[in-house]
Design a binder for these strands. Structure first.
Lengths: 336, 336
DNA sequence: GCTTAGCATGACACCGGTGGCAAATTGCAT
DNA sequence: ATGCAATTTGCCACCGGTGTCATGCTAAGC
């Protein structure tokens, strides 16, 4: 059905290799004859609506030009900032004529088909890979880039400076006169290096100010209310692990009549569109999702082009910055 | 590097066809010898870590087992409900050993590579296709399923009953005693059939109640404030086209001290996680995103398996339902 | 024991490009 | 005109499966 180089070759009276090379741009065309045939062949191809069969090319070259989007359920790629990262990833990868393929790592084992079946030339990982998957990928010599995880230094990665972000958030609160500041993590959050990193940043700022750090896990909800509303020694400010905690806390405080930021200051993490329109607009640590996708894609594509032995892991760190909005304010004077 | 059927065939002392057939399950194995060789070959394949080369299979069969995720920038697939639809799409497609490929329709022309290069066997469309793309897809006889758009009856589609949703929302407000109800659309919303359909539902309910319908475009913001805050004859309730309008209105009203729902009732459209935690929690029209993905995927996969002439467009309609939360309340008594 | 339908098997062409190699052609210098 | 290097061109094997066809084998029926 579709036009092939052989049909073009026949009509043009040349061999299929010539057609293939010309349409691929493998010919310098300095000779007079070459330039002429090249022009003729290109015209023919255009007229006949030729499109290289990418299945055939992938087979023959052993390269699909596919990039796997590898993620576990824990990575929540359909939530928050991650969707924006994926968005930029798609864009960047397209620019180099590659395409992105969903490769969820779940019990269905579909990832095996994709990775072991040779459907992709490399993978972008949200956030890290189970050991068996990693082993399989390694065996196939597929280059990888990890996004948002620094657990394996032997793989290239793009990470956010979580420590710096949490540090800045805590500093901001300390600067407003707060002393009783809590670091909050929701208990549905999977153990992930960023949880610890943000904690480190928080603690560093607290230590520096000579204030006692306090941590809390948001669960069960009652527990949180007890701490934030009924507690005797209740905190005046909160550093949230992410926007989830911030959203839930703002909502819970609204229910209990605790005013934000008058009675309680809240800092989130991640600059989602919606946080700008919360009541009050959320002060949060933000970073540019597009940068992460672009860096990741470029690092991966570079590795793919490189011969196996020249590949070496690179780590890129993205600096977040604090965006001050309405959910933080000066500490109450009356604080005991 | 990777194991092929030829290597297995050699070791097993049979032909490559036999290996291929046995590993594909094309053999009934009623004969004694067959059963024995089959067992031997399967064991060998397992021991050698054989994996069929899917590039080769795709080439040979002319089928990639890839499904294109076709979307324009206008479709916002990285926002709101759409991400959930994509999520379920991935899942459902995997169950049938297919994989999803991002195929954004933009000026980069990358979609041509994917569609015309034969990288996919079919496509899921958010929400509709530009004419040139549609023509290209048609020419390749690629089956399609449209999600959330009913503009082309010749293509299978999964649509939400927008009219019924907006009707239910408006009915709810009328039931609470509201008379001055406005239908709100943000001006960044692209012309899309759902805008009109929801308007129809809104109007139907208003007409039924014998109340004058009123529509508004959210832009510029000043305009909205004028209408909702300063207006003499200002509305007491709003039916929003989507959650975007609802979020912005709730936020703006908070700034102007208009209390929701006491002074103004707001109904959104789309049941996002975050709407549950807005202040107040949003009354909204919701539908199950997963259902849409599953239906769409199944319809498409069915079409792919079918011979060209047996394919006929199917339309599935998903019923939304009203979720009453805190942003709607009875109309004020003092209303003139 | 012989026939025969039915299934398993092997041989081989094919899908549509790629890439290495040898042969042909060209431009340029002598 | 001749030689030479540079470049283009054609030929062909190859990538790893699939599917068809002819042949070989098997088990059941007589």
């Amino acid at each position: 059905m579709a036009v092939t180089i052989y049909e073009i070759a026949e009509l043009a009276g040349v061999s299929s290799s010539t057609v293939a090379r010309i349409l691929r741009g493998d010919v310098k065309e300095s000779h007079r004859r070459s330039a002429e045939t090249a022009k003729r062949i290109r015209r023919l191809a255009r007229e006949m609506g030729y499109r290289p069969n990418l299945r055939a090319r992938a087979f023959s070259r052993g390269r699909t030009h596919g990039i796997g989007l590898l993620y576990t359920d824990d990575a929540w790629i359909f939530e928050g900032m991650n969707t924006e990262v994926v968005h930029s990833l798609v864009r960047e990868v397209q620019r180099s004529k590659y395409h992105l393929v969903f490769a969820p790592i779940d019990s269905s084992g579909a990832w095996e088909e994709i990775v072991l079946g040779g459907q992709i030339d490399g993978g972008v990982v949200f956030h890290s890979l189970p050991p068996d998957v990693l082993a399989a990928v390694r065996e196939r010599d597929l280059p990888l880039v990890l996004l948002g995880d620094n657990s394996d230094p032997s793989i290239s990665q793009v990470v956010i400076d979580d420590t710096a972000g949490a540090y800045a958030a805590t500093k901001h609160l300390l600067g407003l006169g707060h002393k009783r500041i809590v670091y909050f993590v929701h208990d549905t959050v999977k153990p992930h290096c960023s949880v610890a990193e943000r904690r480190v940043g928080y603690r560093a700022a607290m230590d520096e100010a000579g204030v006692e750090p306090r941590e809390c896990v948001y669960s069960p909800e009652e527990n949180v209310i007890d701490i934030l509303v009924r507690g005797n020694d209740r905190p005046t400010a909160i550093v949230c692990y992410s926007n989830l905690e911030a959203t839930l806390i703002v909502h819970a405080m609204w229910q209990y009549g605790v005013s934000i930021p008058a009675d309680l200051s809240v800092v989130g993490f991640n600059d989602l569109f919606a946080t700008r329109y919360m009541t009050p607009p959320l002060t949060t640590v933000g970073f540019d999702a597009a940068t992460i996708g672009e860096l990741g894609a470029r690092m991966l594509l570079q590795d793919i082009e490189l011969p196996l032995e020249d590949r070496k892991p690179i780590v890129e760190m993205v600096k977040p910055k604090l965006i001050v909005r309405g959910s933080t304010g000066p500490a109450m004077r009356v604080a005991n």
